[in-house]
Every structure is written in structure tokens, then in C-alpha cells.
Nucleic acid binder design. Structure first.
Lengths: 182, 182
DNA sequence: TCTATTTGTACACTATAACGCACAATGCTA
DNA sequence: TAGCATTGTGCGTTATAGTGTACAAATAGA
């Protein structure tokens, strides 16, 4: 039971907990026994493809994201790329569509901020740029202390080697795509 | 042994044959027995994640694409400017969120395909890669003559220096984000 | 043609996934 | 506090993944 993506168990547990599901509830939703789900989360067993499929459909997430364990907190991104992750408050969900890739030097994230949620990031290292497309809601973007506002369908790019932050001051959820180039 | 991606076995056999590897050779490369590889190809067994990982590393392909039966060779990346844009037919709307930028070597497009719309692209020059996030609808993606299907929320990356095309065979509009790196 | 080698499949055996169930620990309520 | 429900883990059992091996069929070479 070695040589497999190490993110599965950890990511699955975090996903389940983010939903506030017990193992029992997750078992009911996925059709996989809670004992097996527990084994997977603890890395004690390597699930078959059929079992993985059940889990992905039960949690209603894409198969790819299940394997990548993408539903994890931004403070877990430090193993993938440079330091200085956004300070996270509750109400923020980060999905990694494409993790950092040395061949292209960028990663592609999707962020969901609940109303009132706010996240600030220390400056990235020099030369890092972000390109954002707002999908839904109103994005308040803070660059070096100055706030700007963007609506769904609007884009913005900025140098990320400055203090920056995101905030959802609207009434609904804020969703945006964020391609970060290093 | 149901409820799993049906493309695995077929795709694995085709990949192996495209390499002109016997089961024996594939077994030696991957560390998975030839009997098991045969079972997988014939759909008689649902491999564990560890076994899938062995296969992916032995064949030197992306894990995700092993599952999807979507195979491409990571060719040499050479930095060449974009030349060929997709051949556009009616029913297709291309929005450029971020045009090509030499500092990051990619562009970010958003494509809308009406039901029935189809678009084919000549191979880009060597080394061009595309990363796609399906926002809405069902994306049929054609790579070197083989069609694959992706739902909203799913992602796919592929080498664009091969003939490729997009099609919306669904009933509603298809929307996807396309980051093309040169 | 014949012989040797290779190939993919079937089968018996071993290892482990996946399950149901029991239970200790925890949390909640009266 | 006691009693009950929930939760996650461990364990024994069942099912199946994964293996090594034999073998028929196919292929390669003389």
C-alpha cells in the first residue's frame, strides 16, 4: 500500500469534515462502508477504482478532484509552491483545478467566498502575477491597501508581489478563477 | 466491478499497443503482473489506486489521463508564438479574457458553443498545451481522432500540437475556460 | 515445412480490499 | 450524575484484487 497519491486520505477527510458529515453519513451518501472510508482516510488501504468512483459520485465531486485532494485549506498549499499563503477565515473554499506545474509555471485555483468572508495574502515573491476572472458575485480586491470592485464576467490582473486581499461584501456567494503565474 | 470509468481498460490497451509493448513488457515497466494488466484491459477487475499508480508511472503518463483513457505524449516544449486559431463555425463565441502575454506565455479564452456547434483546430506548433475547465454543459473533446467527454466542473489538459476539436453534443450551451500556454 | 519463442488467457493460490458488527470514547440531554 | 446516541476504530469474515504458472494459439526464424 505504497506508491499512490498521498493526498487522497487527507483530502477525503478534510472534504468530509468541511461538509460536516460523519463517517456514517458519508457512507450513506457514497455506498462505501464507514469502516472502509475510515481506512482510506487513515491511509490504511488502497481503494479500488470502483470504490473511488462511488465516493466521487456520492460526494458529487469530480473524480480528478477526489484524487488530487483539492478540497483542502490554503495553508496546505505550502508543499506545492512558495510560501506566504492567504490568511484564511471561515467561509472560504479553495479548489485547485490545476496545481502548480513547473512546465508552465502557473497554477489555476477557484475560490468561493461566502458573504462577509475575507482573505489577505502577504506579498508573493517578485514577479508573481495573478489573473482573475469573476464568475459569480462581487469581488472586492485589495491591492497595497486600496480596494477595487469587480463584477461577474470582469477580469483583473495584478502583480502579486504586493500585499493583496479578497473580500466578498455582497449578499451571495463570490466565485472566481485565479491563475497564478510564478 | 461496476460504476467506474469505462475508458480505463480500452484506453490502457490502446496505449500499450501504440507503444508496441507486449503485456510482458508492460508488466516489466510498471511492476504490475501481465495477468493483472490483461484483466484490467478486459475489464475483469477494478484495480486499486496503488496499482493504477504503478501503471501510470510505468507508462510515464499523467494519472488523470490514465483514468480517462486520454493519452498524450509530453513532447519537448519549445517556445514558439501562437499562429493557428481554431477554425470557427457558427454557434461559437470566443471571448478573450487575457490575450497572449509574452511575460507568462499564455492566453486565457472562454468559449461558448451552442448545441450542435463544433470547432476543429489544426495542430498548434510543438509544445503548446491547453488547460480547460468546463463551466457549463458537456464538452466533447477530440484529440487525434478520439473523442472524450467532460462535464461541468471537470478539467482536462492536453498537448495541443495534435489535431483537436471541441463539440457540444448536449442540449444546452457549452461554456469552458481555456488557458493556452505556448 | 518445422521448431522455438512469444503472447494473451485461464486458473489456483495468496494478499488485501471491503464489509458488518462490536465496542470504547465522546457528546448530549434530562 | 446517569442514560442514550453518535462517532470512529478494530476485528473477523467474505469477496476480490493480484500473482505465478501452465498452456493453447500466434508469431518469428531457419
Amino acid at each position: 500500500m505504497e506508491n499512490q497519491p498521498s493526498s487522497l486520505g487527507k483530502g477525503l477527510r478534510e472534504l468530509r469534515q468541511s461538509r460536516q458529515w460523519s463517517l456514517d453519513q458519508a457512507a450513506a451518501k457514497s455506498g462505501v462502508s464507514k469502516a472502509m472510508l475510515g481506512q482510506i482516510e487513515r491511509g490504511e488501504s488502497s481503494p479500488t477504482l470502483a470504490t473511488l468512483w462511488k465516493i466521487a459520485t456520492g460526494f458529487q465531486i469530480s473524480f480528478t478532484h477526489l484524487i488530487r485532494g483539492c478540497f483542502y485549506q490554503p495553508n496546505d498549499l505550502s508543499s506545492v509552491r512558495p510560501v506566504n499563503e492567504p490568511k484564511v477565515t471561515s467561509g472560504i473554499d479553495v479548489r485547485v483545478h490545476f496545481p502548480f506545474d513547473e512546465t508552465v509555471n502557473f497554477e489555476w485555483l477557484e475560490l468561493h467566498l461566502a458573504p462577509g468572508a475575507e482573505s489577505h495574502s502577504e506579498p508573493h515573491q517578485g514577479g508573481v502575477t495573478e489573473r482573475i476572472l469573476v464568475i459569480e458575485g462581487i469581488l472586492d480586491l485589495c491591492l497595497s491597501g486600496q480596494w477595487y470592485q469587480y463584477s461577474a464576467g470582469e477580469t483583473v490582473s495584478f502583480n502579486a508581489d504586493q500585499p493583496h486581499g479578497y473580500r466578498n461584501s455582497g449578499l451571495g456567494v463570490l466565485v472566481f478563477q485565479d491563475v497564478i503565474h510564478y
